[in-house]
Every structure is written in structure tokens, then in C-alpha cells.
Amino acid sequence: MTLYILRRILQSAFVALAMSMIVFVGLNVVGNPVDILMPADASQQDIADAIARLGLDRPLHEQYFVFLKNALTGNLGISFVNGQSALATVVERLPATLELAVVAMILALVIGIPLGFLAGLRPNSLPAKAIMSSSIVAFSLPTFWIGIVFIMLFAVQLGWLPSGGRGLTRSVFGLELSVLTLDGLKHILLPALTLSLFKIALIIRLTAAGTVEVSGQDYVKFARAKGVRRGRITYVHILKNVILPVMTVSAMEFGNIIAFSVVTETVYSWPGMGKLLIDAIRMVDRPVVVAYLIVCVLIFMILNLIVDIVYSILDPRISLKSESA
């Protein structure tokens, strides 16, 4: 077990290294931040000074090694735009994004699993068909478009909910959270729902397919023959075996939610790190883009690791040894 975890961590470290190299080299090939940062009437001397200050005059591999050395000590460079530590700039925005992602995930599970389960139990009934068809529609809706329609409907036309921002937050252990105030809850509802819609569709389809499959298995027939109550078969025997794979996929989809929060945050001006990334890309703020990526890669890797380990504990049929081979 320990060996397996160690090996996975080492593997992840290599991935991170490779990613950092690709991104760093790629970002340095195009776009000169000096053109954007300096005013149009800056003198040659000013420009040369800026280049030297940012270390852009040194050879690329040297820049990379300096970057790598600094990265290991948590220093990912200084944002070209606000002059502060790039990593701190990103990490500062992390709670807002995580909060949004967690609320979206909870919504997806709470709405998706019951609907999918219902559709899977009676796959030929009218409600089941309605649920499955709407899930195809939800699959087809691009996230940003859902966001726009929600804003148009609930914020502009009906005026029920605010169209952007985080609202009032309350601080818990130094973290500012929106879900703890009524105003914050109003602000998070639309973006979280927007972000979760695609996942709701996914979870519905997964749960429904799983339920159909599990319902036909011998142990269910056996339980029925034995005279176990219908309710118990449905909610204990079937549901238990449907939920595990759904939870695994959901955990892995959490990374996807964080990535797609880039879109949702931009639409709703949610001050998370996804909006920061888009702003940084527009401003050619390389250190912040790189810092965002590194934070993201770390989140994904930790997530995958946790899923693998938890899954192996929950499902004894999977042995870690054979997986790592």
C-alpha cells in the first residue's frame, strides 16, 4: 500500500515536471509581455530595463531552471500585472473556486442520482423517457450559454437573483465563504447550477445505466425469490451497488468542474481562479498562467490519487498490487 502510494506520487511528480516544461517553453515562444506592459511611448531604455528586470533577456533554458528552482520553494514568479507573487495571486482565489465547485458537485449528486435511479428502475416509463431526453438536451448545452440564459431569465427578466459577484461572505478559519450568508447563497445559486447542469446529465445517465444493469443481476432475483421487501431490494440491494461507480466518476469529474469553472466564473464575474486565468491570458501574464496550471495539475493529481486509494478500500476486489504492475 505504502509502496503503491509512493510510486503513484513519484509518477505524478514526473507528470508535473513534464507539464511545467511544456507550458513554460510554449508560453515563452510567443507573445512578448513587454509589448503589453509598457506604455506605447516608453523609451528604448525603459523597455530594456523592463526586460532585464523580468529576466527575459536570458536564454530560455536558463529561465526555465531559474523558474524550476524557484517553483520548488513555492515561488512561481511575480505577476507582470499586479506585481505580487503569482502563486499567492492564484491561491488567494482558490477558495472561491473550490466553494463554487463543491456546491455544484453537491447539486449534481443530489439532483442527478435520484433522477437517474428513477429512470433506471422503470426504463420504459414515461417519466424515465422524459428524464433521459432532457439529459441529452443538458449534454448539448454549452456551459456559457446556460449561464447567459439563466442570467437573462432569473436576473434580468425576473430579478430574483443577482447576475454576478460573490455577495456577502463570512469568514471561517480565515476562509471567506459565500454559502454562510443569505446574500452569498443567492449569489452562488445560479453559477453553481450552471456549472452542475452538465454533470447532472452525466450522473443521470450513469446512474440509470447502472441501475438497469444491477437490477437484472442474479442476486437481485434471488432476493426477490427469497421474499425480501421490494423497498429493501430497491434502496439497499440495488442502490448500494449503483452508487459506488457513480461516486468514483463524480470524484474524477470534480477536476473537470474546476476546469469548467473558468467559463462559469467569467460569465458570472465570480472572483475565482478561473476568471483570473482568463484575465491573465488576455494580459499575457505568464507567471499567473503558469501558477494556475501548476495549482490545477496538483489538484487533479491529488484527486486521482485519493480516488484510487479510496476505491481500493471500498471495493476489495481491486488489489493495489496488480494495478501498479
Binding site: 510554449g26 510567443v30 477536476g255 476546469a259 469548467f260 467559463v263 491570458i281 498562467v289 496550471l293
Partner: peptide, 20 residues
């Protein structure tokens, strides 16, 4: 496998931020 473990949108975003 490595690439599939990263969301498509993130890969595309980063590539576009590089190539314009």
C-alpha cells in the same frame, strides 16, 4: 491516459494562450 485525465477545455485554453 495522461491527456485524458486533463479536461479538454483546459488543454485547448492553454494551447490557445500559447499560439494565439
Amino acid at each position: 491516459d495522461l491527456q485524458l485525465s486533463f479536461p479538454t477545455i483546459l488543454i485547448a485554453l492553454i494551447l490557445l494562450s500559447v499560439v494565439g
